[in-house]
């Protein structure tokens, strides 16, 4: 929030001139009939995506030359807002002249890019990016029908954010690599969740298989587990400085049990570890003397030196023992 957000942008002002023009006069709106396609000895493919009850629906028509697999003509019908109509229109334009296999490579990002007036300025406001996703979905469906395969087979990755086309794998990597903790950070790094927002959490514009909140939680959990495992491994290998605090305390206790405590007990005393505080230069180990040690003259000199040098030798040179 700042000055520019006070008034809130007008949705329609953010549309490119191309979007506006195509909404008012779509070039490829219409249908292709079986007879027309047959007259050119071509194959007609008609695919639907979406439904009126979901807010947007598109029907894509392809006339494909069976000898070359080239889409020679394409039309669309659309139930949707201005950007849905403009996206569908540019989609058909992008399809014509391509082979079916080439057409499958057209993504919603290509559709949106083709609607821009200049390469740097988005054609639609963020929440409308979603309209172009339908174009991508319906192309895959048409291609699946033509090739006789499941349209799912064209997708190599699991796409979590359709608008920005960000995959599950990318999200997990970016979270781990940059130690991200919030959805806002994820959107800043990947653009995922920055458009129609459906993928952020359940309850948005449409249902999703994966939500950013779950991916973030699960990835963070995985990171924590990895960290703990790394620390445990470090502990097993004796790398004191990479241990977690609990492990460090356990390791110190173990060393004291092994090499120190018996001598204190022989003199009628004992000690306990109160806390461990690592800093850049030292790892401070706070201890408290018990029984006869408490107040014993050597507890601040000889005994202390013995404890510290044992821990230094066995665990880390950075250890400093401080009785309290």
């Amino acid at each position: 929030m700042a000055k520019n957000d006070l008034l809130g942008a007008s949705l329609w002002d953010a549309y490119s001139n191309k979007v506006t023009t195509l909404m008012n006069n779509p070039n490829h709106q219409g249908e292709i009939t079986e007879e027309e396609a047959a007259a050119h000895s071509n194959r007609l493919i008609v695919a639907d995506f979406g439904a009126e009850s979901c807010g947007d629906a598109v029907r894509l028509y392809w006339e494909v030359d069976p000898k070359t697999d080239i889409i020679v003509n394409s039309k669309f019908k659309s139930f949707g807002c201005g950007t849905a109509i403009a996206s569908s229109d540019i989609m058909t334009e992008l399809c014509v002249g391509k082979t079916v296999k080439e057409a499958v490579k057209i993504t919603n990002i290509d559709v949106e890019f083709a609607l821009r007036d200049s390469p740097e300025i988005p054609a639609v406001p963020p929440q409308k990016m979603h309209c172009s996703v339908m174009a991508y979905d319906v192309i895959k469906k048409a291609a699946g029908l033509y090739m006789g395969v499941d349209s799912e087979s064209f997708e190599e990755e699991i796409i979590v954010c359709e608008c920005a086309r960000v995959s599950l794998k990318t999200l997990q990597e970016v979270i781990k690599l940059n130690d991200l903790t919030t959805i806002e950070q994820i959107t800043d790094y990947t653009k995922a969740g920055g458009f129609c927002k459906s993928c952020i959490r359940p309850g948005g514009h449409e249902k999703r298989e994966y939500y950013l909140v779950d991916i973030l939680r699960d990835t963070r959990r995985e990171m924590d587990e990895e960290k703990m495992k790394a620390a445990a491994d470090a502990g097993a290998k004796g790398s004191f400085e990479s241990m977690t605090l609990v492990q460090q305390i356990k390791a110190i206790d173990a060393q004291i049990d092994e090499s120190v405590r018996q001598f204190l007990i022989m003199d009628g005393g004992d000690m306990e570890v109160i806390d461990v505080k690592p800093s850049d230069d030292y790892i401070d180990v706070y201890i408290r003397y018990l029984g006869a040690c408490n107040g014993c003259a050597s507890s601040a000199t000889g005994t202390l030196y013995a404890i510290e040098s044992t821990l230094k030798e066995k665990l880390s040179k950075k250890i400093r023992v401080l009785p309290i």
């Binding site: 639907d48 995506f49 979406g50 439904a51 009850s53 979901c54 629906a57 996703v133 979905d137 895959k140 349209s151 799912e152 997708e155 796409i159 359709e162 449409e206 249902k207 999703r208 298989e209």
Partner: peptide, 8 residues
């Protein structure tokens, strides 16, 4: 089209 299908 199935009503309100998930995008994949």
């Amino acid at each position: 089209s199935k009503a309100c299908e998930l995008h994949h």
